[in-house]
Design a protein around this nucleic acid. Structure first.
Lengths: 237, 237
DNA sequence: GATTGACACCTTGTGTATAATTTAGCAAGG
DNA sequence: CCTTGCTAAATTATACACAAGGTGTCAATC
C-alpha cells in the first residue's frame, strides 16, 4: 500500500511533471507530433507507447486520443485502438471543397470591416513572404498570420474554428511537400489580388479570388500527392 | 488481491454488463440525454454522477465527454470539469450561416444524381409529413429521413458528417420549441419547391430554395428563443 | 493448402490515491 | 450590521496500477 505512494512522491520530488499540467495539453503534444510528421499517417497509436513517450500513464493518452478523434486527426476503432488518420486524395478534395465555401464567406466580412492598420499589416506580411520564398518553416508561419489577420476578428467564431481545424489537418500533408514555382507565383498573385480587392472594398472580387486561391491550393496538393505516390511506386516496384 | 477479482467475477455472474460493450456507445447515451433535454444546457457534467447514472466507472465517462467535446456538444475546462454547451443566439446564427453554405452545396450534387426511386421516396415522405403535422416526435424523424435521402449518397462524406453533427447540436434546442403555423407552411412549401427543382434538374433553384430553407429555420428558431427568454423574464421578475 | 487452436499484445473498464477547485464558515474591518 | 478577506473542509477532477476481454498472428494438424 505505502509503496505506491512513496513511488509517486519520489517522482514528483525528482522534478518530473506531476502529469496534471501536461494532461491539459497532451493532445497538443500528440497533435504536434502528428502534424510535424513524427507520427506517420496510418501509424498505430498504442496507448502504452505514447504514455512512455510523454512520460504519463495510459489514461490521459486515451483521453487525448478521443479528443483528437473529435478533431478528425485520429481514428479510433473499437477494441482495435487508434491510428493517425490516413489522408487520401478524396479526403483532401472533400476538405478543400468545404474550405472553398467557408473562406470566401469569411473574407466577405473582412472586406467591409478591415481597418487601415490591418490592411497595412497584410501588405507588410505579403512583402515579407515575397522576399523569403526559400524559407519554408517561415512561410507557413507567415501564411498562418496572413489568414489570422483576415479571419481573427470575424463574428462567426464557429466558422473560424472550423477553418482552423481543417487547416491543421491539411498541414499534416502540406508540410511534407515542396511548393512548385508556378504555385508560388499563383499564391503571390492571389494574395495581392485579395489585398487589392479588400482595399477597393470589393467583397465579390475578394470572395472570388479567395475561392480560386483555395481551389488552387487543393489542385497543387493533389498533384504533389500523385507525384509522390508515383515516386514511391518507382522506388519500390 | 484476490478479493477484487472475486467481486468482478461475481458481478459478471450476476448478469451485469461487463462494461466492455457499453463503452463503445457511452457517448451516444450521454448525447441522447443531452439532446432529449434530460441534461440541461449549461448543466455541470460530473463524472462520478454520470458514472453512477450509466453504471460504469468514471474513466469511460471521461472519454465519452472528451469525444462529445470534439462534437461541440460539451465544453471541458481543465480541472473544472465538463458542462453541456450553453447555446446562445449568436451560436445558433453562426451554425446556421455555415449550414447556409453547406446545404445548398450538398443539394446541388443530388439534383444531378438523384434516382427516380429517391425522388419518389422524397415525395412520399413529404406527403406523410404534410398529413401528420401534429406528431412532433414523428416529424423530426421524417425530416431527418428527408435530409438523409438527399445527402446520404453524396461523395463528400466530410461535408455530410459536418452537416449531421450541426444538426445534432441544433436539435438540442429545436426539439424544445413548437413550430409556428407560419413556419409549418413555409417548410411545406420549401420542401415541395426543392422536390420540384430536383425533378427539373435545376441545381441553381434547388440550392437557392435550400438556402432560403436554412435561413428560415434559423430565423424561426431565434424568434422562438427570444419568445422563450421573454416568458422566462416575465415569470421570474 | 486450409482451418483451427493457442499465445501474445493491446485495448478497455475498475478501483483507488492524489491534486485541484469550490464552497462554507469565521474573523476582522468598514 | 453588512461586507470583505482568509482558511479549512468537502467536492470533484485527474492520474495511476490492475484486471479482463478482444484481436491478430503463428504454428500445428487435418
Amino acid at each position: 500500500m505505502g509503496g505506491r505512494a512513496v513511488r509517486i512522491v519520489k517522482r514528483v520530488q525528482d522534478g518530473e511533471s506531476t502529469g496534471q499540467d501536461r494532461g491539459q495539453c497532451l493532445h497538443d503534444l500528440i497533435r504536434e507530433d502528428i502534424v510535424e510528421g513524427r507520427l506517420e499517417p496510418g501509424a498505430r497509436l498504442k496507448t502504452a507507447e505514447l504514455a512512455k513517450r510523454y512520460g504519463t500513464s495510459t489514461n490521459p493518452v486515451r483521453e487525448a486520443l478521443h479528443h483528437l478523434q473529435g478533431e478528425g486527426i485520429v481514428i479510433i476503432s473499437p477494441n482495435r485502438g487508434a491510428r493517425v488518420r490516413p489522408i487520401s486524395e478524396d479526403f483532401v478534395r472533400n476538405i478543400y471543397e468545404i474550405r472553398a465555401l467557408i473562406e470566401p464567406y469569411l473574407v466577405r466580412w473582412f472586406v467591409n470591416y478591415a481597418t487601415d492598420r490591418e490592411i497595412e499589416a497584410l501588405e507588410i506580411l505579403q512583402r515579407d513572404i515575397d522576399e523569403n520564398r526559400s524559407d519554408y518553416q517561415w512561410y507557413w508561419q507567415a501564411n498562418e498570420q496572413f489568414h489570422n489577420i483576415i479571419y481573427g476578428r470575424h463574428y462567426n467564431q464557429e466558422a473560424v474554428e472550423l477553418e482552423f481545424q481543417q487547416r491543421k489537418v491539411l498541414h499534416i500533408l502540406t508540410r511534407r511537400y515542396a511548393i512548385s514555382r508556378a504555385r508560388w507565383q499563383a499564391i503571390t498573385r492571389e494574395h495581392w489580388d485579395i489585398i487589392e480587392a479588400i482595399k477597393r472594398h470589393d467583397a465579390d472580387e475578394a470572395a472570388r479570388v479567395m475561392e480560386q486561391h483555395v481551389r488552387g491550393a487543393c489542385q497543387h496538393l493533389i498533384e504533389q500527392m500523385r507525384a509522390a505516390s508515383v515516386n514511391k511506386a518507382l522506388h519500390r516496384p
